[in-house]
Design a protein around this nucleic acid. Structure first.
Lengths: 209, 209
DNA sequence: TATAGTCTGTAACACTTGTTACTGTAAAAG
DNA sequence: CTTTTACAGTAACAAGTGTTACAGACTATA
């Protein structure tokens, strides 16, 4: 843990803080598909992502679901912080997009360090700001774009996060993330294929160009 | 300014901090319709709202616009903070919903106080969290609701903010805030009137029940 | 009062998205 | 190898929203 922590957070956080983190934090490994935080969970620890990627979903009261954004190494989940500090239940679900590792920091240290370490304050604020920006991007997608454009953005982001042009995913899974139906996704994907932008296979999609 | 500041922030912020605010902050009055922050503005001061209400809008790259949420007394604009800290341009537009007053705090103090005053940290975080929650609400509206439900929510919120059941607004103005067209709004309002939920007049809407 | 401008109502139509149903094919399980 | 299940393609239709056009009513102003 120590090596990875220094490697990823060494430039962001000061030495003394990193040492404290090592002492109080718990390392946790996760596998693709694991539900790391669920809707309604009580959050008592704050996660710092060391490796892998996590996707953050919003759930409708009766059944719908929507992908908000992805988190990568060096990020934290501000939503969790929000819940920690406000002592409220989680408003989101966090699902592992790939295998990876997080360190979990008890919330009491998180608050203590805000007064103690300037680098911690900067990191936490920067993280909040990133999340706010990503929420704005999500809103832009929903408010100003049609499903075809949202789908393209989704595929590109997915490709970026997984660092490949071949995305292993079914039409149904995409439909869940975009809160629409499988038929709609199939229809639009077909149109994208006709445009020569992608190539469709069973349970995976190839991004061309 | 001193009285109002103590009255509204007295329970949130410690005495010493309130005194500092008085010394460095600038009082600014605004009138309904004033553009307080515009898209692309460079933010160098952080606003604390003393009275009145402000609406926060997101703009599409070519022309659309969308109401994100309202801010009331005791709140601050976290988006501005985000921009202050990140030293980036404003991602949103802030328009006065009613007449009111803000105090503007230079960003350097804002950062200084984060290390110095616990109550300031708590306030700033609570504010961030409120904004994140409101962004989630905005996303819920966009992702999971049809225009008729969004319109109802809009009218209710508008009524609450202005503390009246008689909302002075044209259909066109509503259409701008919800990023749709006037005809769509007129159509849905008519349906709501037939349901006995509202009564329509020229340039104002009465919420029944 | 006459005139221009603003606000609303409505119709007709196009486009996007959602829904249901059915088919064929590939993969997995037996 | 056979059966079952999962995945994808497609059609036909419904519903929601966006667009254009026009008319009538109200308001402000000259």
């Amino acid at each position: 843990m120590k090596d990875l922590l220094h490697q990823i957070y060494g430039t962001l956080l000061e030495e003394a803080l990193l040492n404290e983190i090592e002492q109080v934090a718990m390392l946790k490994e996760f596998k693709e598909g694991d539900v790391i935080i669920d809707f309604g969970d009580n959050i008592k620890k704050m996660p710092l992502l060391l490796s892998g990627a996590i996707k953050i979903l919003r759930e409708d009261f009766d059944e719908g679901e929507l992908l908000l954004y992805f988190i990568e190494k060096g990020d934290t989940c501000s939503m969790s912080m929000a819940c920690c500090i406000g002592d409220t239940k989680s408003e989101i679900r966090a699902v592992a997009e790939t295998d990876g590792q997080v360190v979990m920091i008890p919330v009491m240290y998180m608050e203590l360090w805000l007064g103690k370490y300037k680098s911690w304050r900067n990191y936490v604020f920067a993280s909040y700001n990133n999340r706010l920006k990503e929420m704005l991007t999500a809103i832009d997608n929903l408010a100003f774009m049609n499903m075809d454009k949202r789908l393209i953005n989704y595929l590109l982001e997915k490709a970026k996060i997984n660092n490949t042009k071949e995305i292993n995913i079914t039409h149904q899974e995409i439909a869940y993330d975009l809160n629409t139906s499988r038929v709609v996704i199939s229809r639009l994907l077909k149109a994208l294929e006709k445009d020569g932008k992608i190539k469709l296979h069973r349970a995976y999609i190839e991004i061309l160009k």
